[in-house]
């Protein structure tokens, strides 16, 4: 057999091959996996909700603190007002 013929035989060696059969319980396993993943969905939703709530809480706390901080600094930086009498403007 020449070299090229031998290679052709190798390349065609799967022609006419039977189809391999998977495990007969495969469908049951697939249904079980779908069921398990569907049950675990609420848990993942719960985690997402928990994370969103935590972020919202942190954000609210931050905003509240910033507002308070701004108010306090605004109160402190108001120009001091002095009531001066006309007499007090007199120069000696």
């Amino acid at each position: 057999m020449n070299n090229e013929q031998w290679k052709d035989d190798i390349l065609d060696s799967m022609r006419g091959a039977k189809r391999a059969e998977p495990n007969p319980f495969l469908f049951t396993r697939i249904l079980a996996q779908i069921e398990t993943s569907e049950q675990s969905v609420p848990q993942s939703y719960f985690k997402v909700r928990l994370a969103v709530s935590a972020c919202a809480l942190i954000l609210i706390l931050n905003v509240t603190l910033i507002i308070r901080q701004v108010r306090v600094s605004a109160e402190n930086s108001e120009p001091a007002t002095y009531s001066l009498n006309d007499n007090q403007y007199q120069l000696y």
């Binding site: 060696s13 799967m14 091959a17 039977k18």
Partner: peptide, 19 residues
């Protein structure tokens, strides 16, 4: 070894999958 390969082609099929 592909479970569906014809007996006389088993070795050739194994070589095919290797490459």
């Amino acid at each position: 070894n592909h479970p569906g390969a014809i007996l006389e082609n088993k070795e050739k099929a194994a070589l095919l999958f290797k490459v």
